[in-house]
Design a binder for these strands. Structure first.
Lengths: 201, 201
DNA sequence: TATATTTGTTAACACTGTTATTAAATTTAA
DNA sequence: TTAAATTTAATAACAGTGTTAACAAATATA
């Protein structure tokens, strides 16, 4: 009696095929031109079937938003694991963040609402919180081994993320494609300033 | 024979009325819901007349983008004039930037493509360059009176703008409306770190 | 086999930006 | 003043968009 299991499996495959078709569209023409109709066309089904698997278009976008934060969190965690010193970790994570943004530009734009309406209340998404926690814990560790143990870690987390996002998004607005490698000097400049202020004060 | 002058004047008044109607729409429902049809409805004319004054919808958005950068540039210049010391100027300008972003949220979102497609090649807009120059000149002055005169001013400008934009946009993504006054501590933290690094090194 | 239930399609609604065609008003020329 | 030229505006349409009500076909249950 594995019929309902098979049905469940097929349903999930169907759902996955919708996301797959959507992703192909996005990679080829960007978020702006993604439409339910094109997805339906790609999977060779009629339009309303998509609404059997997703409440609306936003639900599809939300799925990718979550995926994006999960991928970023995974990357940060992996990179963090390559170092022991919190300062080194924060620096390496900053570079990884930058690379993720430009290697997975479509994800990043969706996650942070660059050019398209982002899911409001992004910070309530659990995958987003997961990413935050990785950053926060590292900052807390850095503070533990710093001169001033009373530093507000949440403030510093916010500053850290803001610097990273600011650098990335300003860069993305101004130029198409991946930035020159030298542009990473700006990242290096800003982030080393932040880390110095965090540890030395 | 002031007929052509009158016509020219009327044409500009018409143009202004289009922008005025658009702005009312934006303030009440945001950029997302602005449409040519609603503008036409508001000015009580048919749709195609709008295309006699603007090539397309993007041209209307571009107009507001320019306006926004002009307003921001004016504000920064005014604030800068209140201080003599470059460090103080950079700090005051940072606070003015923050205030502008949240007081003129609609402008800011359009200028930096938060949630809506920004005009590509924003940095080619002259009003944008004007704003940049105000920041750059102040940074150059700060470098002149700093320890290391060889500091790359353009890199520092980019860092300065990125920090500001990052702080603002992360804040805007996470919360609706104007942020708590205490959130400005994050700005203070980040920007004073930047200025210290700029002048003391 | 007959009845439910799920699944998918057609067709429509209410929008969007944009434009070709046509009519009206206005200005210019005779 | 009348006729031609020009400007100005409106209607109606095209090609899209997200979403959904109504209906038909396939499948599962009784």
């Amino acid at each position: 009696m594995g019929i309902i299991e098979r049905k469940q499996r097929q349903k999930e495959e169907f759902r996955a095929s919708i996301l797959e078709a959507a992703w192909v569209q996005v990679l080829s023409d960007g978020w702006q031109s993604l439409s339910i109709r094109k997805i339906a066309d790609a999977i060779e089904y009629s339009i309303p079937v998509i609404y059997n698997h997703f409440e609306n278009k936003d639900a599809i976008l939300l799925e990718f938003t979550k995926e994006g934060f999960q991928k970023l969190a995974d990357t940060l965690l992996e990179v963090k694991g390559r170092y022991n010193n919190p300062s080194e970790q924060l620096e390496a994570m900053a570079h990884a963040y930058w690379d993720f943004a430009f290697d997975q530009k479509e994800y990043y734009q969706l996650m942070f609402g660059l050019g398209i309406p982002a899911c409001e209340r992004v910070n309530q998404i659990s995958e987003m919180k997961c990413m935050s926690n990785i950053m926060i814990s590292t900052i807390q560790e850095a503070i533990s081994s710093s001169k001033n143990q009373n530093t507000d870690y949440f403030l510093k987390y916010h500053t850290y993320l803001s610097i990273l996002h600011g650098l990335v998004s300003i860069q993305m607005i101004q130029k198409e494609g991946k930035p020159d490698p030298e542009k990473k000097m700006i990242l290096q400049d800003a982030i080393s300033g932040f880390i110095t202020a965090l540890v030395k004060n």
